[in-house]
Computed example of a mutant assay.
Amino acid sequence: MEELAEAAGITPRTLRFYRERGLIPPPRREGRIAWYGPHHLARLRTVAALLERGHTLNGIADLASAFESGRDVGEVLGLGEPTEEEPVRLTPEQLADHFGDQVTAENFAAALDLGYLATDGEEIVHVSRRLLDVSSALVDEGVPLAAVLAAARRVRHHADALAELFTDLLRAHARDGDVDRLRPLAKSVVEAELSMALDRRLRARDAKA
């Protein structure tokens, strides 16, 4: 314990306190001997980094609990890597850099439930760099992360329905039924319709002003 505390730049008493609060996982035990490994040091450095970013110990403890219960990356991506999206590996500190103090246990759990995030050891994997960048940009614009995730759940529902519609349409009528080859056509239709829908919404809002 003393060696781990020294490597992390904290006192053994602080390390014991962190362990009691659930900020780090328990050590591996062999009889009366407790073994700490590199993942414990990584977690302690994460705790220090989150404290520097203004997170409280209670908030970090809740986040650690959500992290420990998170779905493994193999479970989220087990059906295959996204064909067009680039997964991003993040440390908890890097995730906090994107979203600041809005990286709460509740938001983390919501992102895990959506399948946006997964865990891989001490790392976090976001399934899509584009979605990560857009979510971060929306938060920078003042949209709460909880609202972004709630909207994402609604978008997911509509996106699944659109994917089913186009898959059925192309398999039933396209010459070779190759949905993957024709997916750019489906994406173009959705992008154009969304653009026109936004135009209609904005014009309607301006007319009421």
Score class of each variant (00 low, 15 high):
residue 200 R to G: 02
residue 94 Q to P: 05
residue 163 A to S: 15
residue 149 L to T: 01
residue 63 L to D: 00
residue 197 A to G: 08
residue 97 D to S: 05
residue 181 R to Y: 03
residue 56 T to S: 15
residue 16 R to L: 15
residue 180 D to M: 05
residue 138 L to E: 12
residue 127 V to G: 13
residue 164 E to N: 00
residue 208 K to I: 12
residue 132 L to Q: 03
residue 111 A to E: 05
residue 141 E to W: 12
residue 21 R to T: 10
residue 20 E to P: 04
residue 176 D to V: 05
residue 42 A to I: 00
residue 7 A to T: 06
residue 82 P to K: 00
residue 49 A to Q: 02
residue 113 D to F: 00
residue 91 T to E: 02
residue 92 P to W: 03
residue 62 D to L: 13
residue 136 S to M: 11
residue 134 V to L: 15
residue 1 M to S: 15
residue 35 W to K: 03
residue 138 L to Y: 10
residue 154 R to T: 14
residue 151 A to P: 05
residue 114 L to S: 03
residue 58 N to W: 09
residue 84 E to Q: 11
residue 117 L to R: 01
residue 103 V to C: 03
residue 134 V to A: 14
residue 14 T to V: 15
residue 38 P to M: 02
residue 149 L to N: 10
residue 36 Y to E: 01
residue 97 D to H: 02
residue 47 V to Q: 06
residue 68 E to R: 03
residue 50 L to F: 15
residue 109 A to V: 04
residue 189 V to R: 13
residue 70 G to I: 04
residue 17 F to N: 06
residue 5 A to F: 14
residue 109 A to R: 02
residue 97 D to Q: 04
residue 119 T to D: 06
residue 174 A to N: 02
residue 56 T to C: 15
residue 2 E to M: 12
residue 109 A to G: 01
residue 38 P to Y: 01
residue 174 A to C: 06
residue 54 G to I: 12
residue 77 L to T: 00
residue 88 V to Y: 02
residue 79 L to Q: 14
residue 15 L to S: 04
residue 86 E to H: 12
residue 157 H to S: 15
residue 3 E to I: 11
residue 147 A to Q: 10
residue 145 L to S: 04
residue 154 R to I: 14
residue 122 E to D: 11
residue 93 E to L: 07
residue 205 R to E: 14
residue 121 G to V: 06
residue 116 Y to G: 04
residue 79 L to G: 15
residue 108 F to G: 06
residue 66 A to R: 08
residue 209 A to I: 09
residue 97 D to K: 05
residue 198 L to A: 09
residue 94 Q to L: 00
residue 113 D to S: 01
residue 19 R to Y: 13
